[in-house]
Amino acid sequence: MKQAHCIYQNDDHRWLAIARDASKPGYLIDTNEYLVMDGEQALLCDPGGIEIFPAVFSALSAECDPTKLAGIFASHQDPDIISSLALWLEFKPDLKCYTSWLWQSFLPHFGGSESTFVPIPDPGMTIRLGSLELQAIPAHYLHSSGNHHLYDPKAKILFSGDVGAALLPPDQGGLYVEDFSRHIRHAEGFHKRWMGSDRAKRDWCERVSRLEIDMMVPQHGAIYQGPDVQRFINWFAALEVGVLRG
């Protein structure tokens, strides 16, 4: 069963990672969901698919009042990111979903109406949550053609969607990256195949290098902390992407 782990706290400004669902069926890819909270408001990043909704909802409810959920941030349009949208709306019909403008007419196939979606323009935007000013950072073509990450300048946390994702074996289920060299082997094949554009990758590496990041939190795998964040950016910058094999 998924559990919510507090990965950052400063008064009532918190980041929770909802991760590691050992009881989910093996045919579903494991996902991490992140909840950003400030005071009376919360934003859920990449809430996940329909099948894992009960586990995510229950883990979230254990740590916070779900009625405080003000919005959902969808890094892109994939089913493991946002196919649970209709269920979150079932619980809270006035929920806002922040996502790239590109998916504004695609995501309603998962649920929601015109008023549900707040389109994020290509250069990104500021998303206000309580006293926080979260930044939607462009990450187009990494891997989706309309893709954003979410940066919290106060907590210095970057939610990086599929960038930094690793398909970890069961014996390496730690929440944080402990041994970068060992960990990154499980990220290599994923990034080579899923990240389609070398130019987009270089742009992203330059963009995020300018940010102060203490933690990079991906949608799959483990969380990068401290020097491992820059290690990852350097590794990714040098990686050949958009290749089938090799």
Partner: peptide, 26 residues
């Protein structure tokens, strides 16, 4: 949707705010 939401509510235990209203709407 109602069946999945019901399962989520059962997993979350009693007393989660907003669930009664959500079930009523459904």
């Amino acid at each position: 949707n109602s069946a999945i939401l019901l399962q989520a509510i059962r997993l979350s235990g009693d007393g989660v705010p907003g669930v009664r209203e959500a079930r009523k709407r459904g």
